[in-house]
Simulated assay, not measured.
Amino acid sequence: MPYSIMLDAGHGGRDPGAVYNGRQEKTDTLALTLAIGQILQERGIDVLYTRTTDIYESPYQKAMEANEADVDFFISIHRNSFPKPNAVSGVESLVYDKSGIKLEMAENINEQLEGIGFVNLGVKARPGLVVLRRTKMPAVLVEVGFINSDTDNMLFDDNFSDIALAIAEGILDTLGINTPAVPLPDENEIPVAPLPDENEAPITPLPDENVSPVIPLPPRYTVQVGAFRNAMYAERLQQELSELDFPASITEGNGLYRVMVGVFPTLADAADMERLLRSAGYQTVIVSQ
């Protein structure tokens, strides 16, 4: 049975979180959380979100959502702040107490982010935080750099995809889920093509008059918004999208329930829909059918 994780994009709605030069924590955390979720889903994890748009929920509500969903882990994504701008930089992760698998996961996430170039400020126990104290499952709150550090913001913006992958890898390493290695070809082995038989004349097949030529259909495009191993999560996202008037549907294949929006004759049409979905806060991928 696959692991399930609830990802929480810190703050949201009327709560912008930390703000620096017009930059809002809630915006950074939502974009990063959706990117992390996409990677985890592709690696077979059932992912739920406390929010996928710019809405407000209290920390208590988020903890209760995780408990009611009975997920295996709760990961909250934040940006840090310091009273004096550009005085401190780095990443740190917070846990209820420094024990168990949550500590291991926090350390693995920090190490992965250190590899991106962040200063590793370590793991700290914060038993007073609601999302760490009220959740019944192992919970980690990740502070992905200081929002009032120009150094950290440059790292965040220039390495966004790598940061999402680093956090996902830290989680997957803790769970023992690794990408299988692809064997490399033997550099010392030279492939040898078979020589043609000199006594055998090449045979050119004659066309079959009764077979009509197959004319390939032009490609069609759709926009994927999520992929889940649990149908309930896919149905929940489809309903959410439908309420926002997006033409969402679910396709099943290879053990995944994929939430798709629309079918478009051109890539440009699909790109227009993708932009609408991204502006609504969703992580998307255009798929050719």
Rank of each mutant, 00 (worst) to 15 (best):
135 T>I: 03
190 I>F: 02
147 I>F: 14
141 L>I: 14
20 Y>D: 11
110 N>R: 05
108 N>C: 01
269 D>Q: 10
172 L>T: 06
137 M>E: 09
247 P>W: 00
15 D>Y: 04
101 I>S: 07
192 V>D: 01
203 I>L: 10
185 P>I: 11
242 S>V: 09
94 L>D: 05
228 F>M: 00
251 T>V: 01
249 S>P: 05
132 L>G: 03
248 A>E: 02
174 T>A: 13
112 Q>G: 06
121 L>H: 08
194 P>L: 12
24 Q>I: 00
45 I>H: 05
282 Y>G: 01
218 P>Q: 13
174 T>S: 15
256 L>H: 11
72 D>F: 03
25 E>N: 02
286 I>D: 02
51 R>V: 13
202 P>A: 02
167 I>H: 05
19 V>H: 01
16 P>Y: 07
244 L>K: 15
157 D>R: 03
265 P>G: 04
208 D>Y: 06
34 L>S: 11
77 I>D: 00
192 V>L: 00
76 S>V: 10
211 V>G: 02
126 R>Y: 11
122 G>K: 12
282 Y>H: 09
18 A>Y: 07
44 G>E: 01
185 P>W: 07
110 N>T: 06
156 F>I: 09
19 V>R: 07
69 A>I: 11
205 P>E: 04
59 P>D: 14
65 E>W: 07
250 I>F: 09
61 Q>C: 00
75 I>L: 14
82 F>D: 05
194 P>M: 12
134 R>V: 11
69 A>G: 04
242 S>L: 13
90 G>K: 06
85 P>L: 08
170 G>I: 09
201 A>N: 13
265 P>Q: 05
147 I>H: 11
9 A>H: 06
199 N>M: 03
155 L>C: 00
62 K>D: 02
131 V>N: 11
146 F>R: 04
39 I>R: 10
281 G>C: 02
216 P>E: 09
72 D>P: 11
30 L>G: 10
203 I>T: 12
110 N>V: 08
